[in-house]
């Protein structure tokens, strides 16, 4: 019965993927013909099928860039980087597009810098897996001790080494997970930042299309963002797209 259900579901799962691949090829063809807007539409169609890939997001970013839509271009290359943090082509385009936007972010705190490095090189999942291994080892040793009802010297030495490692790994995994979970958004169009979430509030700053800002709060159709200088302000949600 289960096999029958799987057989029934399999073609339904593959059909969108075939459609995704067809649209992907179509987008590439349109790009080669110089039709960046058409290519962007084709690539967006791929996303509608429920399938994605770092390469698709990169190509979509490139198409928007050629169509002079910097905000969506930044958005999709950031998404590509989220899908594949160590993809060289993605990292390359991300560096270029960030230079193009030119917005200098506030220098990261040591914690942020460490979290960014861990996120790029290991990832929150990798950190959590490492933590799990150390955690299981510690639990195993503790269980052994409880069962035997005695503490042997080698067991004590192993716990002295492993427990601090587990604590450090837990802190690093939490830091990385929090960094990756923190919502960030791309400014899709030049927008005004206001002091309070209201059209009537005074404009405190303007942010340019393509800037990436952390979201710190939301209220109705307004999002609170942290600006590069560390200040916070409110932007209309329609001007942002979460990565």
């Amino acid at each position: 019965m289960l096999l029958l259900i799987l057989l029934m579901l399999a073609p339904q799962a593959e059909t969108p993927r075939a459609e995704a691949e067809r649209l992907f090829v179509l987008g590439n063809t349109l790009m080669s013909e110089g039709d960046a807007r058409g290519a962007a539409a084709a690539y967006e169609g791929v996303l509608d099928t429920g399938w994605t890939s770092p390469e698709l997001e990169l190509n979509l970013s490139r198409a928007y860039l050629d169509a002079d839509q910097l905000g969506p271009a930044v958005l999709h290359v950031e998404r590509a980087q989220r899908l594949a943090p160590r993809h060289e082509a993605v990292a390359h385009n991300l560096r270029l597009v960030r230079e193009h936007v030119g917005a200098s972010a506030a220098p990261p705190s040591p914690n942020e810098a460490a979290a960014r490095w861990l996120s790029t090189h290991v990832g929150a999942g990798g950190m959590m897996a490492m933590l799990l291994v150390v955690y299981l080892a510690v639990l195993g040793l503790v269980g052994f001790r409880l069962w035997k009802g005695e503490t042997r010297p080698w067991l004590r030495r192993a716990l002295v080494v492993l427990v601090p490692i587990a604590l450090v790994a837990a802190a690093a995994a939490l830091l990385t997970a929090r960094y990756e979970a923190a919502p960030r958004a791309v400014v899709l169009v030049d927008a005004e930042v206001r002091g309070t979430p209201s059209d009537m509030a005074p404009t405190v700053e303007e942010v340019a299309e393509g800037m990436v800002l952390p979201i710190t709060d939301e209220r109705g159709l307004w999002r609170a963002v942290r600006l590069p200088d560390g200040d916070e302000g409110w932007i209309e949600a329609s001007a942002l797209e979460e990565i």
């Binding site: 987008g27 790009m31 290519a39 890939s53 390469e55 698709l56 990169l58 860039l65």
Partner: peptide
């Protein structure tokens, strides 16, 4: 800028 890439990992 690199792209478009021809192959994708879905």
């Amino acid at each position: 800028f690199i792209g478009p890439l021809e192959t994708a990992t879905w």
